[in-house]
Every structure is written in structure tokens, then in C-alpha cells.
Design a protein around this nucleic acid. Structure first.
Lengths: 129, 129
DNA sequence: ACGTTTTGTGAAACACGGCTAACTTTTAGT
DNA sequence: ACTAAAAGTTAGCCGTGTTTCACAAAACGT
């Protein structure tokens, strides 16, 4: 069951928020992504069904599988945002637009692009939120 | 009335096909994009309403407004495909994935990125289809 | 412990962009 | 000119991902 762009965004935001604040609730994701809590509720149900997240009483967390994707997305996010910022794009715009670019490439293509552009330093998953 | 990704794809394909063969019919667009003629028919109605295309008896053509966007998209397409190919991605995959990247950036950001990466040579709108 | 506020869920609706199927219109072969 | 094929349109459906609104459940202040 392939993940769509929006699913990847949800996973990524759970990942970022959990690094930032420990536990993550639906409402946090909703605020972070700028969608309603109903949307998050629906999306979480789907993602849980597909084995990407698990929902506790009052929190959501990534499974192994979900974490892998989330980390990958975040890595790409940082890469593209860094690239755009280096090109002179403002951080706000770079962040907005990077958000979309991160979903366009296969893992293989992304690695090739990154290695050609030689930005391994700023693109790792360890970059802070 | 903002254009969506799919709308931009339709405009771009009309542009490419018109360079390739002169006049463009709906069916050509359908084959080029791999969608049904019904989908094209619907999309053309919308694009005509918004002033991006005009439909003759048996052809479609871009308005000034549509042409501007189509050219821009094609320019970006060539840029991203070239970039990916240079990175070692196969032409087929590069073309597929470049198709999505071209919709992510604002004009301003794209220009900045292009000028930083210095690929003006291959990214112009004069590149052949 | 009670009531208020916050958080989460469920139902119904909508927009979008595809599809199929049936139909109409145009084009083209003979 | 007639018929058959090709092209275009229309109507209706589906999946995805939103929304709003109403409600349920949990958390929190006092």
C-alpha cells in the first residue's frame, strides 16, 4: 500500500514534533500542518491501518516502518530547503516549497542528486527541527 | 484563478505538441499524457473558461496567458530532467520525476536555483521536444 | 467531584482529477 | 454520398483529501 504525498507529510510532522516535544498528539499535527483535527483523525486511522503509526490513548507514534519514511522525508526536506536557501530564497519560502519537492524523487534519484550536489553535510536526518 | 499541477501539465503538453506537429487536438494531448480523451475534454473546458486555451473546431491552442505558463513549465522540465540526468538518473526516470518537480517552485525561486546551479545552457525554452 | 475546556471522532459534504460508457459529431475511404 | 472509424462530449462514478458541524471523551482548575 503506497503512501501518498499527504501521508508522507503526516509522518514527517510526527517525526519532527516528537523530536521537538517528545510525545505528539493529533492536535499538534493539525496545528503544524495547518489542517483541521478531523483531517488528522482520518489520516491517522488510515496510517495506523497501513502500519505506519500506532495510536495510544492520547498520543501518536511512528512504527519502525513509519519512522523510516519520516526520516527520509525529513532528510530530503532539509536538503531542498538548504539548497534553496543557498540559492538566495528566504527561509520561509524555501521551507514551503521544499515541502513539495521532497515528494518528487525516488530514493535512488535523490541519492544521486545529493551526491552530485555534494550537500551531505546539511542533509542528514540528524539536523534539528 | 490559480492553476493546479494537472492544469500546468495540460498546458505544457499542448506547447510541446504544437512545436512538434503544429496543430494539436485533444486526442494528441490524451495520448501524450496517458489519460483518456474524456479527461482532456473536461480539462480543456476548464482551461478555456479560465482563459488559458482556446478551442477551435478541431484543435486547441494556447492563449498568451497559457503560453507563458506552458513555456515556463517546459523550461523547468528541461532544467530538472537535465539536472537529474547529469546526476546519473536514467532519461526515463528523470523525465518522469522531473515532471513533478517542475510544479514545486515559484518563478522567483526557480530562477535563483537555476542561476546558482548554472545550467542556463540546457534549460531554455528553446530546447526541442 | 463537578463543570469547563480541550482534544478526538464520526457523518455528511465538497473539490479535484481521474475513469467508463454511451452518445454525437467529424473525418475519411470507397 | 454512405458508411465506418476516429475524435469529442456528457453523465455518472470513484478515490483522495479536505472541510464543517455535532458530539464524545478526557484533562484540568478550583
Amino acid at each position: 500500500m503506497a503512501l501518498r504525498e499527504s501521508g508522507e507529510d503526516y509522518l514527517e510532522s510526527i517525526y519532527v514534533l516528537s523530536k521537538r516535544q517528545g510525545t505528539v498528539r493529533s492536535i499538534d499535527v493539525a496545528e503544524y500542518l495547518g489542517v483541521t483535527k478531523a483531517s488528522v483523525s482520518k489520516a491517522m486511522a488510515t496510517l495506523e491501518n497501513s502500519g505506519y503509526v500506532e495510536m495510544g490513548k492520547r498520543d501518536v507514534h511512528l512504527t519502525e516502518r513509519g519512522l523510516e519514511i519520516a526520516r527520509q522525508m525529513w532528510e530530503r526536506h532539509c536538503f531542498f530547503v538548504g539548497l534553496l536557501e543557498d540559492a538566495g530564497v528566504s527561509p520561509e519560502v524555501a521551507s514551503q516549497e521544499g515541502c513539495h519537492m521532497e515528494h518528487c524523487l525516488s530514493e535512488e534519484s535523490f541519492e544521486k542528486l545529493r551526491s552530485m550536489l555534494g550537500r551531505e553535510d546539511v542533509a542528514g536526518p540528524t539536523t534539528e527541527a
